[in-house]
């Protein structure tokens, strides 16, 4: 179970006006602006739930994921994931979760994908038998058999994303964080990724939290949506709650963004 209670997080961002002169001035004296990435964010996610976490760019989605995966420490508030405080008990915590950043790769660029997987096996100290079973299952579900012997740099984006997701599930994590897993994918790959996430959730009861800008992802996957804007949770409910009035979900969300001025 994941609980976040009154979590706040702010950053200091250096600001300056445009131009070379201003850049020189900023070398010596900087003006900082505090940005509140999260203000009193609270929610609870139960085991086996699939939650879509949406909001415009810069709303605080990534900060939330980073706090839940132990990368960042919040300024205040309490965070508990299966009884662990992620940022205090990092190593024990991350052994139980899987994280995929859609815009970054965890695969070694120049070697076949299977080599990266073998390394992950040692990183997570996965027992041989569990590794073999998981690899076999992931290979057939994600259709990886052709890809495993190819260097990551030669994969297409969709192929690479399938491998990234497989890599983050080799150690059978209970919770999977997906930060924009379908960004830039073509229709076929998107469907494959969505299908797989759904299956993974049904088969193993993996809790899935995904951030996305693609409302079809949300419709296809999650029964629950959390909408965040300007660091605050604005809505926590089902896709149906969003869709009142029979418009398409994209229009509704755009309207919501406008209504909340985010």
């Amino acid at each position: 179970m994941i609980t976040m209670q009154d979590v706040c997080k702010s950053y200091k961002v250096a600001k300056r006006n445009a131009g070379f002169g201003e850049a020189c001035k900023a070398l010596f004296r900087r003006e900082y602006e505090t940005i509140h990435a999260l203000r009193n964010v609270s929610f609870t996610i139960n085991d086996g739930e699939m939650v879509g976490y949406i909001g415009p760019n810069g709303a605080g989605k990534s900060s939330t994921i980073k706090i839940l995966s132990g990368i960042l420490t919040p300024d205040s508030g309490t965070v508990l994931v299966d009884g662990r405080v992620p940022y205090k008990d990092r190593i024990r915590h991350v052994a139980q979760i899987g994280v995929v950043f859609g815009q970054r790769s965890q695969l070694w660029w120049d070697v076949p994908v299977i080599d990266s997987f073998e390394l992950l096996k040692d990183v997570y100290s996965i027992p041989q038998k569990q590794y073999d079973n998981n690899l076999e299952e992931l290979t057939s579900l994600l259709n990886l058999s052709e890809l495993l012997r190819t260097p990551a740099r030669q994969l297409s984006l969709g192929q690479r994303m399938r491998c990234e997701i497989a890599g983050s599930l080799l150690h059978s994590p209970k919770i999977l964080f997906l930060d924009e897993p379908t960004i830039g994918l073509d229709a076929v790959s998107k469907l494959a990724v969505r299908d797989f996430i759904k299956k993974q959730n049904e088969l193993h009861g993996t809790t899935v939290i995904l951030t996305t800008h693609d409302m079809q992802d949300i419709e296809a996957l999650s029964k629950r949506i959390i909408l965040i804007g300007k660091g605050e949770i604005l809505l926590d409910g089902t896709p149906e709650d969003l869709k009142k009035g029979g418009q398409s979900i994209d229009e509704t969300v755009a309207e919501l963004y406008r209504a909340y001025d985010i």
Partner: peptide, 14 residues
């Protein structure tokens, strides 16, 4: 800068 240190922090190793 590339953010791969974030990835380091999501692995159960020092």
């Amino acid at each position: 800068r590339s953010g791969s240190f974030d990835q380091v922090l999501t692995r159960p190793r020092g």
